[in-house]
Design a binder for these strands. Structure first.
Length: 443
RNA sequence: GUGGAUGUAGCUCAGUCGGUUAGAGCAUCAGAUUGUGGUUCUGAGGGUCGGCGGUUCGAUUCCGCUCAUCCACCCCA
């Protein structure tokens, strides 16, 4: 048979690594909720039109990276390439923007883009996203940035130096950006630019600003800068954002080259960038998008938020050797040397069933030898192993082996007695393991 | 979409200047006096040497194409 592999740019998460995902997700939800951002869920696919109007039809994401197909009803459907458009659509659809504002939501969801995979870039990746609607002031920007900072410092090792740098900029409102664009175009007109930038000039001249080509860099050095061409309102807004972020003790640098790839941004844009995970160093990025709700047919509603790439956080954790592994060790293994249909086999199964109300209990289901069952119990890290065979049935007594020191405890063959004995034996230690692994996740 | 590197067991990798049954370590499974783990010893299973085509008496080894992985550009989280 021919092997079927995972589609290009997708990743399996095996049980061994799933703990780190739980830990990230748990922390994300906890931090989001501590800032008042409730969870929202939305479909993995939408009408293609939503992304064309939301993300923007000049963007690469919409032009060449969307998974678009026609469904059996003839509709053009696209897998979501990002989360914000869907949240806005859902908000409009359910009248949320006419209700109590601000509306604050978070999500953790897979997004899909047809890209060529490389380090930190996948065709399916997961984003932790934050959305805040109905707050126009710089306090909202600062709150969103603070949330981002809190999340990152909770999932990454924070030494004297942070493993990432916050870059902050303002690209102005539609009015001052238009004026700025003209100014920039006039400046760039006569300058020598690389092939890419010549193309960029037509579509999105702002992108020329963060070209990595050395020749363009030198040209751009003297170019007019976005945040110095802002209108009065945008200037005050940006100044306040900086003040508030500084007040919160969050270090940042103003990068006047920083622009974003999605059309809907205005005023504040920011990126948390690291240098340890390859060329795709942006781990979290966002900003303000005041025009988006109206653009998609809702009431004029100011908005801001961010998206954070979970896989890139994982990569950064790897780079810093952050280990995260919950213990999944059985408390008790019940072994038997008899056949599954024998009285002992039946008793073992019933007992396992009862004791699982208290602990994680393993019982062999492969029919391997008693010795192999012990070996397996040891490998799993079981605290106790209890054997039930014909002798135990006859005497109505069981011995339970304490694996740490090999001591044998004797007990009546009765679930209540066994529970009592084991509870007494572990009393000085910590409580048994029956709890949600995602609840006690922290570094 | 463009460019570079790589592709041998579940994992990490040897190896074949083209030649009979392709190896190691780890992992898995089974035994070492028949109902008791971690060490040790012995043994076993597991690979169409990424796929297709070409050159050749003969290819896992050479050539072409293709697919996949990794990395960079582009773009973005």
């Amino acid at each position: 048979m021919e092997k079927i592999t995972a589609p290009r740019g997708t990743k399996d998460v095996l049980p061994l690594e799933v703990d780190r995902w739980h830990m990230l997700e748990t922390t994300a939800r906890r931090v989001a909720q501590s800032y008042g951002f409730q969870e929202i869920r939305f479909p993995a696919f939408e009408h293609t039109e939503l992304f064309i109007r939301g993300v923007g039809d000049t963007t690469d994401i919409v032009q060449k990276e969307m998974y678009t197909f026609e469904d059996k009803g003839g509709r053009s459907i696209s897998l979501r390439p990002e989360g914000t458009a869907s949240v806005v659509r859902a908000g409009i659809e359910h009248g949320v923007f006419q209700g109590a504002l601000p509306f604050k939501a978070h999500y953790i969801a897979p997004v899909f883009r047809y890209e060529k995979p490389q380090a930190g870039r996948l065709r399916e990746h997961h984003q932790f996203g934050i959305e805040c609607y109905g707050a126009a002031g710089p306090e909202a920007d600062a709150e969103v940035i603070a949330l981002a900072h809190t999340f990152l410092t909770n999932v990454l090792p924070v030494a004297t130096e942070l493993p990432f740098v916050l870059h902050l900029n303002s690209i102005g409102c539609p009015t001052c950006r238009g004026a700025y664009r003209d100014k920039l175009l006039a400046y760039l007109q006569s300058k020598p630019l690389c092939h890419n930038c010549t193309e960029r000039m037509a579509r999105n001249p702002l992108r020329v600003l963060d070209c990595k080509e050395a020749s363009c860099q030198s040209v751009v050095q003297d170019a007019p800068v976005t945040n110095q061409c802002l209108c009065a309102d945008c200037q005050t807004h940006f100044a306040s954002v900086q003040t508030y972020v500084r007040q919160l003790g969050i270090p940042f640098v103003v990068s006047d080259r920083l622009v974003r790839g999605l059309d809907y941004y205005n005023r504040t844009v920011f990126e948390f960038i690291c240098t340890q995970i390859g060329a795709q160093g942006t781990i979290l990025a966002g900003g303000r998008y005041d025009g988006l709700v109206e653009q998609l047919g809702g009431p004029p509603t100011p908005a801001c938020g961010f998206g954070c790439g979970i896989e890139r956080i994982l990569l950064l954790q790897d780079a810093f050797g952050v280990a995260m592994r919950q213990e999944h060790t059985p408390f008790l293994c019940i072994t038997t040397a008899d056949t599954p249909d024998s009285p002992a086999g039946v008793a073992a199964r019933l007992l396992t069933q009862k004791l699982r109300a208290f602990w994680y209990v393993e019982q062999d289901i492969t029919g391997r030898s008693l010795k192999a069952q012990f070996k397996h119990a040891d490998r799993l890290g079981a605290k106790y192993v209890m054997t039930i065979g014909s002798t135990e049935i006859e005497t109505a007594t069981v011995t339970i082996k304490r694996m740490a020191d090999g001591a044998k405890l004797t007990c009546a063959l009765d679930s209540d007695a066994i529970v009592a004995l084991l509870l007494a034996d572990i009393a000085p230690q910590t409580a048994p393991v029956m709890q949600d692994s995602s609840e006690n996740a922290n570094l």
